[in-house]
Amino acid sequence: MEAFTTHTGRAVPLRRSNVDTDQIIPAHWLKKVTRDGFEDGLFEAWRKDPEFVLNRSEHKGGTVLVAGPDFGTGSSREHAVWALQNYGFKAVISSRFADIFRGNSLKNGLLTVVLPQETVDRLWKLVEADPAAEVTVDLVDRQVRAEGITADFELDENARWRLLEGLDDISLTLREEADIVAYEGRRPSFKPSTTVV
């Protein structure tokens, strides 16, 4: 996983709430068996509208998505995170994320930043007034900075450390092999097994 320390880029204001993962990447894209090539499916239905924010020339090349509350609800598809990353987003800011989406994003190195809605509103106003305005998402200092805006955000220490170091979860867990073996040894025999009976 690519490490995330700090990122500065232009922001894309997505003034929509309750954006679910099917809106981020529609179900028919889930037939692919790779992790890349999802960028054209990102917000596919909305991109048919020439006025949709991603279609506007002034927001091309944005790397920080600033979305409304309850971003990433619905289906657990990790493809939603890959689609955002394939498109070029490095961070998503919202006042509230769905749990599974947030877990998926942090595992893939897409930083999801929770900020109060009033700060999101200010970011929206800023980048709508000046699409070239840059937004810095600083994981080292846990801070989002833009012209006239400085906002601290929370992220649990463990998730932050893994992102900063670019550490892969599986390798970390495999260090606990002895604990896993010990647990397996004390599991009751009535627990289900999928072995054909």
């Binding site: 990790e78 599974i100 998926n104 893939n108 599986i170």
Partner: peptide, 30 residues
């Protein structure tokens, strides 16, 4: 799959996971 919560009807702790977690469970069962 997000609707894994269905299995909670049996008193199981059941939840949907993403593909990275699928890989994690396949490799470690945890």
């Amino acid at each position: 799959d997000s609707h894994t919560s269905t299995h909670g009807a049996f008193g199981a702790l059941a939840f949907g996971i993403g593909t990275s977690q699928v890989e994690h469970v396949l490799a470690t069962q945890t």
